[in-house]
Amino acid sequence: MKIEAKLFLYGILFFIPVGLVYGFWSDGEAVGTVGIPLVGGLVGMIGGYFALLARRIDARPEDDELGEIEQGAGNQGTFSPWSWWPLVVALAASVAFLAMAVGWWLMAVAVPLGVVGLVGWFFEFSRGQHAH
């Protein structure tokens, strides 16, 4: 996680000065003058989280400068390739965005659909009481 932390923390060195230069050249245009330094702050928060996470976990093959590709072999996680729940969540998100353009009454459809999709996705591999 060290390379990820550095990648995001170096973003602070770009976005903060660019935001200040933009604010100077645009005579204080409100959106960019505030937005660009805020992006720097958001990038800093992500980089700070990755830096704290890098302290808690063991070094990964990606963190070794002399690491070989073979060191990263094996299982990388548990994935559900045949899951339909991400499609339900995406449909709910698209209806929610449509609600902002067409009418807020569509949120009454999007929110329950999103809750059902998230609960189904979360409990997809559950066994026992919450099994499907």
Rank of each mutant, 00 (worst) to 15 (best):
A59K: 12
G23S: 06
A54S: 14
P61E: 01
W85Y: 13
L106T: 01
M45L: 13
V116Q: 03
L7G: 05
G23C: 11
L66R: 15
A110Y: 00
L87H: 14
F79G: 10
P37S: 12
V116C: 03
H132K: 12
M1D: 03
G120W: 02
P81F: 04
V31H: 10
L53A: 15
P37G: 10
F24K: 14
V34L: 10
G77N: 12
E70W: 08
A110K: 08
A73R: 10
D27P: 02
I46G: 08
E70N: 09
I12G: 06
F50E: 08
V88K: 08
A73S: 10
L113Y: 11
G44K: 06
D63R: 04
L52K: 13
L7C: 05
V18Q: 05
Y10H: 11
A51I: 01
M1N: 00
E68K: 10
Y49S: 01
E62F: 05
I46Y: 00
L38Y: 09
V115F: 08
E29D: 13
M1F: 06
H130V: 13
W104P: 00
V116P: 03
V89N: 07
V39Y: 02
S83P: 06
T33H: 03
V18H: 06
F15A: 01
L9P: 04
V18G: 01
I46M: 05
W105K: 03
E4H: 12
D27L: 10
I69F: 14
Y22T: 11
Y49R: 06
M1S: 09
M45F: 10
F24W: 15
V88L: 06
G72T: 09
V39P: 00
I57D: 14
M45N: 06
L7D: 09
G74K: 02
F15V: 01
W105N: 06
V116M: 10
V34C: 00
W25A: 08
S80W: 13
G47T: 07
P61K: 04
K6Y: 13
E62W: 10
A101G: 09
P112L: 08
G44A: 01
E65W: 11
L42M: 12
F14L: 14
F97T: 08
V88G: 03
L20K: 07
T33D: 00
P81Y: 02
A90C: 12
M1I: 01
A110C: 04
G117R: 02
F8A: 04
L106I: 07
E29M: 01
V89T: 12
H130D: 15
S126L: 09
E4K: 12
L113K: 09
V89F: 07
G67H: 05
S26Y: 00
L20I: 15
A131C: 04
G35W: 07
F125M: 11
A5L: 05
A93C: 15
W105Y: 15
T78A: 14
W25R: 11
R55Q: 15
I12M: 07
F97W: 03
G23F: 04
V102C: 05
G28L: 02
K6A: 11
P61F: 00
P112G: 12
G114W: 03
L87I: 14
